Amino acid sequence: MIDDLAIIAPAFAAGLLVLASHVPLGRRVLERGIIFIDIALAQFASLGMVLAHILHLESAWITQAGAFAAALIGAALLNLSERLWPEVQEAIIGSSFVVTASLAILLLANDPHGGEQLHELLVGQILWSRWQDLLPLAGITLLVLGAWFGLDLQRSRAGFYLLFALAVTMAVQIVGVYLVFASLILPALAVRHCGARRGLALGYAIGALGYGSGLLLSLWFDLPSGAIIVCMLAAGTAVVLPLLQRRQSTA
């Protein structure tokens, strides 16, 4: 058991860093009703990574720059569309995800390792995280949280999209598109009836339990780590949401 914990420790730390920024972002997303923004910007970042791959520019910093540039372009486009066409913003967000995903498939169509690349972009490789991989993620997380809570950039539409681009850029490279979305929405959904502080605390707890149990199950039963963590986050939400909803209705 101790050996198992040592193996998953860096992956669990990566999950906690992703949750640190994504739980408050998720609560704000639910308030604004733009549910698919995270998965759309994650797909923009993935497209940037695909472009770096097909151009054979795959050093860590170039891949990071490509992912962030693509996510920033996506954030700017979605910020513009919300200003011009707010009534169809959710449709535009969903369409941007489908288009960028399709572009990634087309770019990798003739790559012999294209299927593997797409799989890693979607479900990630969190179980194989190393401590040194977490330093950039930790730096971005601190920057996002400082701007979110300290500078209150969440109240600015442009700031909101910029922080999303920053948070997603590193997270998608480690945990993949699916887990980025699940980390954003599922804990926030579970605690949507809670106040600010209690909601954050419970959201972090649900997320941590989902990541921890998912990583252990992945290790013990040789299951894809990203997929099983998503399922465990969903299970936690399915248990907690009705309990909190019932408690509120009887209060």
Rank of each mutant, 00 (worst) to 15 (best):
G124I: 11
T237E: 06
V98K: 02
V175A: 08
S81N: 07
S102N: 05
I126T: 00
Y204S: 04
L151C: 13
L189T: 14
P112K: 01
I229C: 03
I73S: 14
V168S: 08
L179T: 11
G48V: 09
V144S: 03
I2N: 12
A40P: 04
L5Y: 11
G146C: 11
S183L: 04
E116I: 07
L163P: 00
G214K: 01
L84N: 11
H193S: 15
A60Y: 13
L184Y: 09
R32Q: 14
G195S: 12
G74N: 10
V123Y: 12
G159T: 06
D222Y: 06
I105P: 02
L57T: 04
L72G: 07
D133E: 05
A76W: 13
A234N: 09
G203F: 01
G114P: 01
F164K: 08
I229L: 00
Q43R: 06
L135H: 07
G212P: 03
M49K: 06
Y211M: 00
L118K: 02
S156Q: 15
L219A: 11
S46V: 15
S213H: 06
L179R: 07
I126C: 05
Q43E: 01
G150S: 12
A196N: 05
Q154S: 14
A70S: 12
F160E: 07
A65C: 13
V29S: 05
A171S: 15
I39W: 06
G94S: 04
L142K: 02
V23A: 07
M170A: 09
E116T: 09
T237A: 02
Q245V: 11
